[in-house]
């Protein structure tokens, strides 16, 4: 086979990765889709950005991306956080791909720590950046052990931990990276998304792909997959709720960031999903603290 006909800036391959690497990742993705929630090992490459900064998600995105795709990148729900900006620029440079901040326009959304508020639709792909793919890691650090637990579907350790939480705190004291069970078989880490987002994973019409570069694992949820947050009958899963609407767009039922406004205890709550908030504001919805739209900061 000859060298790629599609090269981007600096002579690097389309979307940076060479053909063989893409094939290796693609094969892992196909198996991940076929075994929902199971962590498929893959030979993650050294990428030109640091481990822990999205190298897994970036490799998955690079492996699936084509010229017809429209890419959105968010971090903490926001398109304009520095690492999201940086990753978006990477793909703009290496793949010359169309980018957007609009959830509805994107075919591929790479995310760190959030699922967009706007419900995803069929044909969309959500790519999660995952730091620690192993939901049992902090209960048992050895991969040799946790692999066997997954193989045997032996999740007793996890149930004991959750039950201890209830005994100590009266509730499951886990607010993000809240473990889920996939199709009644695999316990899976949803990545450090807040548990607020967990219900969005269940029966989503979108394909969800998870990439952990440093830990060299890929896993997936096909559309319309059963994803259930772990709980107990007498202590059912409770998603986080906020008392007030977004101070900028007035939205309720969305995830809010707390913004400290002064050093005298002043704070307000605003949407973490910047696209959702901006769209609402553009539609004329305004919260109590809205004071017009900003220009871009430079430092």
């Amino acid at each position: 086979m000859t060298a790629s006909t599609a090269t981007a800036a600096g002579g690097y391959a389309f979307a940076y990765l060479d053909d063989q690497t893409k094939r290796m990742i693609r094969r892992a993705i196909l198996k991940a889709i076929a075994i929902p929630g199971h962590q498929v090992p893959f030979a993650a490459r050294d990428m030109p950005m640091p481990y822990g900064w999205g190298t897994g998600g970036i490799q998955v995105t690079a492996a699936i991306l084509g010229p017809a795709d429209v890419l959105k990148v968010i971090d903490q729900g926001a398109d304009d956080t520095t690492n999201a900006v940086s990753i978006r620029k990477f793909f703009k440079t290496t793949a010359n791909v169309a980018v957007t901040t609009r959830t509805t326009e994107a075919t591929v959304i790479q995310t760190r720590h959030r699922i967009p508020e706007t419900p995803l639709g069929p044909g969309q792909i959500l790519v999660y950046q995952v730091p620690i793919p192993e939901p049992l890691r902090f209960l048992e650090p050895r991969e040799t052990e946790t692999r066997v637990m997954h193989a045997l579907a032996d999740y007793g350790l996890m149930h004991v931990k959750l039950y201890e939480d209830i005994a100590t705190h009266g509730r499951i004291a886990k607010t993000y990276a809240y473990p889920v069970k996939v199709e009644g078989r695999y316990v899976m880490d949803p990545s450090p998304t807040p548990k607020f987002d967990n219900p969005k994973m269940h029966l989503s019409p979108a394909l969800q792909l998870f990439g952990a570069g440093r830990e060299k694992r890929i896993y997936a949820l096909p559309p319309f997959t059963h994803v259930v947050s772990l709980d107990f009958e007498d202590h059912p899963f409770e998603p986080t709720r906020f008392d007030a609407p977004c101070a900028l767009c007035g939205a309720t039922g969305v995830y809010l960031d707390e913004v400290v406004t002064d050093d005298a205890g002043g704070r307000m709550f605003v949407c973490s999903d910047t696209d959702h908030c901006e769209t609402r504001r553009a539609e004329g919805h305004h919260g109590t603290e809205w004071a017009g739209e900003a220009t871009e900061a430079t430092a």
């Binding site: 000859t2 053909d19 893409k22 094939r23 699936i64 096909p222």
Partner: peptide
């Protein structure tokens, strides 16, 4: 004809086929 984009398109078809 185009090893990069043709392979990508074939993969995406296979991925969508297995995902749905």
């Amino acid at each position: 004809a185009d090893p990069v984009f043709d392979a990508q398109a074939a993969f995406r078809a296979a991925m969508s086929a297995l995902a749905e």
